[in-house]
Design a protein around this nucleic acid. Structure first.
Lengths: 222, 222
DNA sequence: TGTACATCAGTGAACGCGCGTTCACTGATGTAC
DNA sequence: TGTACATCAGTGAACGCGCGTTCACTGATGTAC
């Protein structure tokens, strides 16, 4: 009597056919449910319907797998930001939309998000020499996402390009978004009817930062 | 030949005398060095110079210990914020100082900070019935720290008390600080001469948020 | 179209390890008289 | 000041467990001729 564990694609032959993708999907789910520390290779293999040893055909080990999850997360993340930025509206509206996409991604993809923003081990060991055949590295994927944010800002506020430092504005909004997202994920944002939602919080914050930095950019003090 | 493990107070008799404090100190150190997932009761006991079973005279288990670390962290945190707020200067200066104290705490006490802002397990199980004799609960200690922030804000900007929502400003700054601190801890803030330090980042952000929110508070739009 | 064979992607058993926790116990401390 | 005894705070051995990883292996796939 064969056992089923709720994973996808259980009815298969000796070869899985798409094991690498399935493992990453399993990691994404389990990290979302149980956190990084609660994620195990054994669970992932069981969910996929495969022996734990099979994972080593596709990853050098647990660290390398987590790195790949993070890298994919950043790529998907960048894609979401890019889409949010496109479309009409005032510069502030477009930028607010990007911030909302940030929060939505963190909420909807806690597996990716946790992997992306957790300190990883020594990637050099994990990625050579299998990396040559493998996907993107997380640091590069992250840089890509951040560059996109800068680019969006510069396009959205062309008139301020020499007036204020776009990298600064981008960093502020990135940090505020990350702070709100992680506090929310940890259940440490106050809840209640009289208290703003995380989306309202980010909206107000983005507007304040853009206004505030523009103001201090025009009247540089300290 | 007795073994020494680098812990404090190795030369002792059968009773340690201050074991609970020593364990919490060990947890603080190990979490700082290796992260929450890398922290182990066995390591802590060895460092203190005691059998792992001895820990159970003082904590119901690992979760309860982590909860107590978090609670102490929040108390110490609140104390640091309180001190930073005291003293002279303009309202914005005082508030900026509080933000810097926030960042400094996160950097200097990564053990506490990690424990404080990580999702904890079911505290109810951990704290009854030993809690009656025990220290503060993390949620209460956190609320205390946040209330302090609100109070400081209200004192610092008395003229704006009916104009803008102090809780909102406090939350924004809390979230921004947390975002900067965690990005920094994960090594994911860009570094370099041409890029602002985290302290500059927070300083600019706080000023922008206070200015920006005051501006939108005076001219409520959406 | 069929056969031989190299390559690939899994199996299954085993490993060493260190974890959190329990248990009956015992040495040290402090209090009553 | 001294003794009896309850209480406290440790010991040390053991447990069951599940982890990440390795290894020799084998079934499936695909290519050359």
């Amino acid at each position: 009597m064969p056992q089923f564990h709720g994973g996808p694609d259980q009815r298969r032959g000796y070869h899985h056919g798409n094991l690498k993708e399935a493992i990453i999907e399993a990691a994404r789910r389990f990290i979302a449910e149980r956190g990084l520390g609660g994620f195990t290779l054994v669970d992932a293999a069981r969910w996929v319907g495969v022996t734990p040893a099979a994972l080593y055909r596709h990853f050098r080990g647990r660290n390398a797998l987590l790195g790949e999850v993070a890298a994919r997360g950043f790529l998907l993340f960048a894609d979401r930001l890019r889409r949010a930025m496109q479309g009409g509206g005032t510069p502030i509206e477009r930028f607010t939309r990007m911030g909302e996409a940030y929060l939505a991604f963190a909420e909807e993809e806690p597996g990716y998000y946790t992997a992306m923003f957790s300190p990883r081990g020594s990637e050099a060991d994990d990625y050579t020499p299998l990396a040559l055949l493998t996907g993107p590295k997380p640091a590069e994927a992250q840089a890509q996402a951040f560059d996109l944010l800068i680019e969006a800002l510069t396009q959205a506020f062309p008139q301020g390009r020499d007036q204020i430092d776009m990298r600064l504005v981008a960093l502020e909004i990135w940090a505020l978004s990350h702070g709100i997202a992680t506090l929310d994920a940890a259940g440490q944002l106050p809840k209640g009817a009289r208290v703003p939602s995380k989306y309202q919080l980010l909206h107000s914050g983005v507007i304040a930062i853009v206004h505030g930095l523009q103001a201090s950019g025009r009247h540089p003090t300290s």
